[in-house]
Simulated assay, not measured.
Amino acid sequence: MSRAKNYFLIPYLLWIVLFIIMPVVMICYTSFKDMDNHFTLENYRNFLSPVYLDMTLSSFFYALIITVICLIIAYPVALALRNTKNKQFWLLLIILPTWINLLLKTYAFIGILSKEGTVNDVMRALHLPASQLLFTDAAFIIVSVYIYIPFMILPIFNSMDEIPENLLQASRDLGADQWTTFRKVIMPLSWEGVKTGIQVTFIPALSLFMITRLIAGNKVVNLGTAIEEQFLVTQNYGMGSTIAVFLILAMALVMVITKTNKESRDNR
């Protein structure tokens, strides 16, 4: 039986080697090459310059804002879903937007936020001045939050839904009010879901590039747009790979900081 299990691991190991390990190794190798394919450390020196460091800080800043807003909205929504009837139906409605192509959703927001779009039509109907919402930082954050908020809600809801009802009943039987039950029981037991939600929101938010192009009009520059520009515009694959290396390291750091601990959760 154990030998059969080893055979079943072969496709998984091949997938890991071919599509995870090898691409990372190739990116690391290319990061030490200049445009003439010569070995160099200039790419790393350039990345440590003020321009790229500011861009990195900007990427973390926007990713942090998107993640915090998603968390503020998602946590009460997940709590309400847990306590409502037909929770699977409401959860399906939250998941449905994730089935739509990201590019289609982005173009839809262009129509909604443009000067002749839906938002400004409503403003004019209310006799309020129209405003230029598209190509602004606010538009970028709004669209990003809309796209990533289902991925924040799902893990938090799952962690809350796994909380045994008898724990909540025991808390009430011991005289705890709703706030104390929430603070002492629900919040600690849903923390692993919060950390997972932060991972699946913060990490991809670091490398957004399509939304920055179409919604922010290149007014928001982050690591994702820099990588795209280096590979597709200047064709400086070495510099693009160097930025990608630091992006991978940043993602790994976030995963380490927010890693879930199943053993400690089970002990609780």
Rank of each mutant, 00 (worst) to 15 (best):
G240N: 05
S159F: 04
L93C: 13
I227S: 02
F151A: 06
P188Q: 01
T118A: 15
Y44A: 07
N43T: 07
L14C: 14
A78E: 00
W179Y: 13
P150E: 06
T67P: 00
F61Y: 15
G117E: 08
E228C: 08
S264P: 00
G193L: 03
V17T: 14
R265K: 11
G238Q: 13
V68E: 05
T234N: 14
S114E: 08
Q235N: 13
F246P: 01
R3W: 14
D173T: 08
E192W: 02
Y75I: 06
S31N: 09
Y107T: 01
N43C: 08
A108T: 05
G238D: 09
T84F: 10
R213Y: 15
I156T: 01
F39V: 11
E116Y: 04
L96T: 11
F19L: 15
I149G: 08
Y62P: 07
P11S: 04
V143W: 07
E162I: 02
I20K: 03
K85S: 12
S59T: 07
R3S: 13
G193S: 01
T258G: 02
S31Q: 06
P11V: 00
F151I: 05
V17G: 12
H127K: 14
S159E: 05
N46P: 00
I100M: 11
T106H: 07
E116Q: 10
Y237G: 09
Q169R: 14
S241N: 04
S131K: 14
P50G: 04
D34Q: 07
F47S: 03
N86G: 06
L102K: 12
F61V: 10
Y29N: 12
I156Y: 00
T98Y: 01
I20S: 12
I141V: 10
V256G: 01
K262C: 03
W90G: 04
Q230C: 12
P23S: 07
K262N: 14
N46T: 14
T136A: 09
P50A: 08
I227N: 01
N218M: 13
P11E: 02
D161H: 06
K219V: 11
F109R: 03
L91Y: 03
S114W: 01
T260C: 01
T225V: 09
K115M: 14
F157Y: 11
Q178F: 12
P11H: 03
L167V: 06
F209V: 07
C70W: 05
I16W: 08
L48Y: 13
L41Y: 08
L93E: 11
L253Q: 04
F61G: 15
Q132Y: 14
M1Q: 11
L133S: 05
E192S: 13
G193D: 03
L168K: 02
A130T: 07
N37V: 02
F202A: 12
I153T: 02
Q132N: 15
E229V: 10
Y107I: 06
L253T: 09
L167T: 01
I73G: 04
E42P: 00
H127Q: 13
S207P: 07
N166S: 10
I21K: 04
K219E: 15
D36V: 05
T136K: 09
A78T: 06
L53N: 03
A138N: 09
Y148G: 06
R172Y: 15
Y148T: 05
S131N: 14
L93V: 11
A216K: 00
E42D: 15
R82M: 04
